[in-house]
Design a protein around this nucleic acid. Structure first.
Length: 866
RNA sequence: GGGCGGUUAGCUCAGUGGUAGAGUACCGGUCUUACACACCGGCUGUCACAGGUUCGAAUCCUGUACCGCCCACCA
């Protein structure tokens, strides 16, 4: 406390303090003063670095964002007050499919990577009927233009919410810095053989026409049907299989049953013939076949599901692919190599009725054909079953053989599990999800996407003399040239006119999965390889905050990339936030149409009020959307303004805390400070707010009432000085404890009184709280005295309330029944009690438990109550 | 099918072996010189269910039900 300052500079405490306008007032001043700027002169051990989740820009922020980003800010503010230089950047995730879709619709364009860049291009005023084809660089420009507007709106919201972000360090996942990091990491993985390209069966979305990764799958319950189909055996008999995808019969390459299944064992090594198409396929045994499922024998197609891929690979089967990239059955010449049949004319006649149709339509048609030919046994039996979908897609995934880039993952599973144990999870049980995911991985991570708005692969291929692409003959740029776009940039040693020409080169047409870039956010934000000084000060970071739904994507891939690139974790802690649930206990999301506009909430309840609600959500716990809690938070903030006004309007005389209840108050507060520090170190911000709030209300309701008269001098200047010192110390400490939660109200109060910002002040310590006391130590007797006085005062209030009398009604006689050791405390508090309760006479009686008999003065004249 | 979390007052949630709590809602009262955007008081419970351990269980153990979520090779 700046002693003496107050007399020369009268306190600027407003008569009617209010929350309105505090957000605008303080966000502006904070920005102007550079309060939240990262101090990059500080060594690593004095830095607290946060790997902020970059929100997807091509949408709008919702209350779930406000919720979880507040949690991170609480932690950031705490560590800043603990003296750390907090590295707290913001990123924008503008890379990827959501942005692409939005730009296509907004401008009426479509990306054609084969077109050259047109510097003069301007999009149509309004999207036309037919999309305009633009080059990839032009398309990316449009993406950047649209996302820039959104990013400004997001930034305004985050500032209004009071996030203590250093806005000078903002990045976007499509900006040049991110592209460089992403391409550099890719080239290094490629150089070490940790990234590879292969033509293989891949999960494929037929609408987006791109490969997708395992992490982007979700199961959806879909109606389907079991079809019992017979395959002809060489001995004239039949084998019956059950399938939900009869349209894949032309893609059938084998049947499979469990090796121990006596029913089918005689068939192993023999061939059967597919219905309609007459293809000879072998019957194999494989442990994955489940005798309990269907008829116990399954049809292996290339490819119906992931199990087919396993069987196909392990049994070394050929490929008969029928599904095309767009999901339709492709044309096939039966009888040609790979499509051998016992009757090519018949096979062709049947197949021609399916070719070109979607899988769904072909299924309907082939059922008719099978029924006619007598190969359908019985009728299809409708079922509901889980089918794999791309999480952003509308049609079931197919598995299509295509050339894709992968990052080796499977061989690192044990190392990643070990990293997961090294990471400190908040809450700890979230680690199980990480382990579940790793244990369930089916293959390496496919990172290439057949899309446009993303980071391109920095790779070209030589084109052979015959015009075919030699994918094994790769050309890669020097790292110093990154980022490159192989669709417009030319590899070293070639001219632009050799593009796509025999003897020339061609660019890799794909872009990286958005997670292939997002998984590098610690490296991007930390200036990996571009600002080694900064990187050394912030990496590995301290905290990754994120939601639990993206443990398998963002968290997992980040750990993987850091393991591959640095051989370390990217951060020490992972704080996993829950979801916001609507009153029906469902996750709040845009698609459910129940999302509330965040800015409206902030304006109605105040940012401090909304933050109060958010802080009630513990790490990992889903939290109900509750405007009632926001109102409570708003009320707390207002109360803080008013109580502070009361404390600050009378600050002299001031001296050491010698009075018992004053020392008791500060002792309790010192204990609260210790607990709060421990809890916040452990990311348990919710408990800190609860306890601080609880302390604050009893400070207002009991302590302030008790000492009101004394601090005005009723008991002489020395006892007033003790009260004032306790009040000012308690206010000072409570403001600091509340500062992370209620940054606006606490800063406002601080400005009435102190120099600088409360957010730049030091987090309190127990010793400094007790420093106002004489002697400077805990006072257990004072704690008991304060508690005793509060209980007596409460009993008197209760009597007045029960009698429906004004609180200013005098108490003619109060008889306090209590155990001896409590009655001994009375002299310490009697004068305060008499003043606060308007008590005229006090008597004591020994008793087992505390009870107060209260006699009230007769009603004043003129007052009459029913 | 495997796993994780949850089930406490009408609602939102604290409470990890010792007399069931807070806020909110509801009811009633009070203009009390910081605050009526306030204050004071009151009411509210088979701690999901069933067993077990213990002097004692909301709390520990076993099982069950329901809710939410994660994962899975779902023919």
């Amino acid at each position: 406390m700046p002693d003496g300052l107050d007399l020369r500079h009268p306190v600027a405490v407003p008569d009617k303090p209010a929350l309105e306008g505090l957000e605008d007032k303080w966000t502006g001043r904070w920005e102007a003063s550079g309060l939240y700027r990262f101090d990059r002169s500080r060594p690593r051990h004095q830095v607290y670095a946060i790997d902020t989740p970059p929100p997807t820009v091509s949408g709008s922020l919702h209350v779930g964002h406000v919720f979880s980003y507040t949690h991170t800010d609480l932690v950031a503010r705490f560590h800043r007050m603990r003296g750390k230089a907090v590295f707290y950047p913001m990123g924008w995730d503008d890379n990827g499919l959501p942005t692409e879709r939005r730009v296509q619709n907004y401008f009426g364009v479509r990306c054609d990577p084969s077109l050259p860049y047109d510097p003069a291009f301007t999009p149509p005023e309004k999207p036309g009927k037919h999309p305009v084809a633009v080059s990839r660089p032009n398309f990316i420009e449009l993406c950047a233009r649209l996302t820039a507007e959104d990013e400004q709106a997001f930034e305004r919201l985050w500032r209004h919410l009071g996030l203590s972000i250093d806005w000078s360090m903002t990045y976007a996942t499509i900006d040049r810095r991110s592209q460089r990091a992403s391409q550099r990491s890719f080239l290094r993985l490629l150089g070490r053989g940790a990234a590879y390209q292969v033509e293989a069966p891949t999960l494929w979305d037929v609408d987006f026409r791109t490969a997708v990764a395992q992490a982007e799958l979700e199961d959806r319950e879909q109606p389907g049907a079991y079809h019992c189909i017979r395959f002809a055996r060489p001995d004239g008999g039949f084998v019956e299989i059950e399938t939900t995808r009869p349209e894949l019969i032309p893609a059938c390459v084998a049947l499979v049953a469990h090796p121990g299944d006596e029913r089918y064992r005689p068939l192993f090594g023999t061939e059967v013939v597919t219905p309609l198409f007459g293809a000879r396929v072998p019957v194999h045994g494989h442990a994955l076949a489940d005798p309990e499922k269907g008829s116990g024998v399954a049809m292996i197609c290339t490819f119906g599901d992931l199990t087919d891929v396993v069987w196909w690979r392990e049994l070394s089967l050929p490929v008969r692919a029928v599904i095309q990239e767009n999901g339709a059955l492709r044309p096939i010449r039966w009888g040609e190599a790979g499509w051998e049949t016992t009757d090519s004319e018949k096979a062709q006649r049947y197949y021609d009725q399916l070719a070109g149709q979607s899988a769904f339509k072909a299924r309907g048609r082939i059922v008719e054909l099978l029924r006619e030919s007598g190969d359908l046994v019985g009728e299809p039996r409708p079922i509901t079953h889980a089918v794999k979908f791309y999480e952003k897609g509308d049609r079931a995934l197919e598995i299509i053989t295509s050339r894709q880039w992968f990052i080796r993952t499977m061989e690192h599973r044990e190392a990643l599990l070990a990293r997961g144990r090294e990471l400190v999870w908040h809450p700890s049980y979230m680690r199980v999800r990480f382990e579940n995911w790793i244990n369930g991985l089916a293959g390496d991570w496919c990172i290439s996407r057949q899309r446009f708005f993303g980071v391109p692969f920095p790779v070209w291929y030589r084109v052979r003399g015959d015009g075919t692409v030699d994918h094994d003959s790769r050309l890669v740029p020097d790292e110093s040239l990154l980022p490159v776009d192989p669709s417009t940039d030319v590899p070293e040693g070639y001219r632009a006119d050799q593009r796509d020409r025999p003897g020339g080169f061609t660019g890799d047409p794909d872009v990286m999965d958005t997670w292939a870039t997002s998984s590098l956010t610690p490296q991007i934000a930390g200036g990996w390889e571009e600002d080694p000084d900064l990187f050394a000060r912030v990496f590995p970071m301290d905290l990754r905050p994120q939601a639990h739904d993206i443990i398998r994507t963002w968290l997992f891939t980040s750990v993987l990339r850091s393991e591959l690139e640095h051989g370390s974790l990217p951060w020490k802690n992972a704080a996993i936030s829950g979801f916001v649930l609507d009153p029906d206990r469902k996750k709040m999301s845009k698609s459910r149409g129940n999302v509330v506009t965040p800015l409206g909430l902030l304006q109605e309840h105040g940012s401090d009020g909304v933050r109060y609600w958010a802080a009630s959500g513990r790490p990992g716990t889903d939290t109900a959307f509750d405007t009632g809690q926001m109102r409570v938070g708003r009320r707390l903030a207002i109360k803080l303004l008013n109580a502070s006004r009361f404390v600050l309007t009378r600050r002299e005389p001031r001296g050491p805390c010698t009075v018992s209840v004053d020392r008791g108050l500060l002792t309790t507060l010192a204990r609260l400070v210790e607990e709060s520090t421990r809890d916040l170190e452990d990311y348990n911000y919710t408990r800190v707010l609860e306890r601080t709030e609880s302390f604050f209300w009893s400070f207002c309701d009991d302590y302030l009432e008790l000492v009101k008269g004394r601090r005005y001098g009723d008991q002489g200047p020395e006892r007033a000085a003790s009260a004032n010192a306790a009040l000012l110390t308690a206010l000072d400490v409570q403001l600091r404890l509340f500062a992370p939660f209620l940054p606006f109200a606490t800063e406002e109060v601080w400005s009435w009184w102190q120099e600088g910002s409360v957010h730049a002040s030091r987090w309190p310590e127990a010793a400094s709280v007790l420093a106002a006391c004489t002697p400077r130590e805990e006072d257990a007797r004072g704690v008991a005295a304060l508690r005793f006085a509060s209980l007596v005062l409460g009993a008197i209030r209760k009597k007045k309330s029960e009698e429906q009398r004004p609180l200013k009604t005098p108490v003619t006689r109060a008889v306090i029944h209590a155990p001896e050791q409590e009655l001994e405390l009375l002299p310490e508090v009697e004068q305060d009690l008499r003043a606060a309760g308007l008590i005229q006479g006090v008597e004591t009686r020994p008793a087992e438990a505390l009870r107060v008999d209260v006699e009230l003065a007769a009603s004043p004249q003129g007052e009459s109550r029913p």
